[in-house]
């Protein structure tokens, strides 16, 4: 999903890549958030006017992992 939003020709997406380096702008971060919420059935709270906390691919992955784990714990 992240690779789809990265600049064409970027090649393989690594965990350490920053979203900015991948050419993912703020609107695409909002879109990615929506796609991840839909895919994993979680809610990722964030306001695009506050600093976007997920700077790298790893930040995004760990945020989603945390939310999925929290959901599993509630279930």
């Amino acid at each position: 999903m992240i690779a789809d939003k990265a600049n064409p020709g970027h090649g393989e997406v690594r965990m350490t890549d920053s979203l900015t380096e991948l050419g993912i702008d703020s609107l695409e971060v909002v879109e990615l958030t929506f796609l991840l919420e839909e895919k994993f059935d979680v809610e990722i709270p964030f306001n695009a006017n506050s600093d976007i906390e997920a700077k790298t691919v790893a930040d995004l992955v760990s945020a989603v992992e945390g939310l999925v784990a929290a959901k599993a714990a509630r279930a």
Partner: peptide
Amino acid sequence: EAMRIMAPDACRPFSRDRKG
């Protein structure tokens, strides 16, 4: 809401800590 640009607190244009 899906655009995530709406202020939860107040509309404070040009101010520090504005949230949308």
